Simulated assay, not measured.
Amino acid sequence: MPHELPPGQPWPIGFAATCLRATLYILLIAALAQGAFLEALHFPEARFSERGFIELAQSGLLAIASALLLYTRQVLRQLPTVTLLMFAFIFSSLIREQDAFLDNHVFDGAWQLLVTLVVVPSLYLVIRARRRFLAEFAAYANSFSFGLFAAGVLATYVFSRLYGRSAFWEAVLEEHYARTFKDAAEEVVELFGYALILIAVIELALLARRWTLARQAS
């Protein structure tokens, strides 16, 4: 039956599968770090700008995470209210990353309007099904995916903002301060946070798939 709550215990993850996933995640993080390094080394004219590797990678990570959440909700049909709320949050972040393009090529404030069109209906649907949301959240909150998602949100939306403050880097660098240091610190930490969010969504999709297989086998 569609949109049932997941069973209490999904099929366990084997050690070999865990090692494989860990290796792939390490390679992803390493590739992002190397890309940021190459941007700083070889592309000074695009460094930390909307045209640079870091900004494009941030958008790519958010786009893939959004697509996976839609897959989990619409195809695997697991945690529909939790995944809807997560999708609204992540897709709104993707829209926010395009703020300069939207302001310059659509109209000033376009990204705020688009975010509102995504967030308001999603919140309405989640609030309307709040009992179901709380039950789904209880099933999701103790998972590895949720811990990673929370870490990604804290890294991206809290730590990167505080770590990238101009006042902090002015205090560290004193008379050698340049805005490039602030931009590098904030954008690279933000990139890492988005990577954690994507990994969390991948783990959620894999968890949902195991729930689906467990239900089909029961």
Rank of each mutant, 00 (worst) to 15 (best):
V120H: 06
K182R: 13
L94K: 00
V201E: 00
L5N: 02
I127A: 09
F37R: 09
Y140R: 11
T72M: 11
L85E: 07
F53N: 02
R130L: 11
E4R: 09
G109W: 02
L196F: 06
E55L: 01
A217H: 13
T156M: 12
V126Q: 13
A151Q: 02
A36D: 03
A135S: 06
I64C: 00
M86Y: 05
P10W: 02
A88L: 12
A171T: 12
A63L: 09
T180G: 11
A171Y: 00
A17T: 12
L123D: 13
L206V: 12
Y157D: 15
T116N: 11
V158K: 00
A141Q: 14
P6A: 12
E4L: 11
A167T: 06
G109C: 07
E190Q: 03
R165A: 05
L41F: 14
A100S: 04
T81S: 14
R179C: 04
E4A: 12
Q112H: 14
S59D: 09
V120Q: 10
L68K: 00
F192G: 13
V126M: 15
I199P: 13
A138G: 11
G52D: 01
V82E: 09
L113Q: 06
P121M: 04
F192C: 10
R21A: 04
H42F: 05
F89V: 14
S160V: 10
V153E: 00
A30F: 00
L102P: 03
L123G: 13
E4C: 04
F91S: 06
F48G: 05
E55G: 04
T212D: 12
L102F: 10
F192V: 09
Q74L: 15
R210L: 03
R128T: 09
G60A: 09
Y124L: 04
Q58A: 03
L76D: 08
A40N: 13
S145P: 10
Y71E: 07
L56R: 12
I197V: 15
I202S: 09
F53C: 03
V118Y: 07
A46F: 13
A141T: 08
E170K: 02
A31H: 02
S145N: 06
D103K: 12
A17H: 10
L28G: 14
V118S: 04
N104W: 02
Q58W: 00
L24S: 08
F53H: 07
A100G: 08
A63T: 00
Q78V: 10
I54S: 01
P7V: 11
A65P: 01
P80I: 07
A46G: 00
G147F: 10
A208S: 05
V158L: 04
L204E: 06
V120G: 05
L38V: 03
R165E: 03
S93E: 06
P12H: 12
F43K: 02
T116M: 15
D103H: 15
Y140V: 11
W11G: 03
A138W: 10
F144K: 11
F101H: 00
W111Y: 14
E186Y: 00
N104E: 07
Q74S: 14
A110F: 12
I54Y: 01
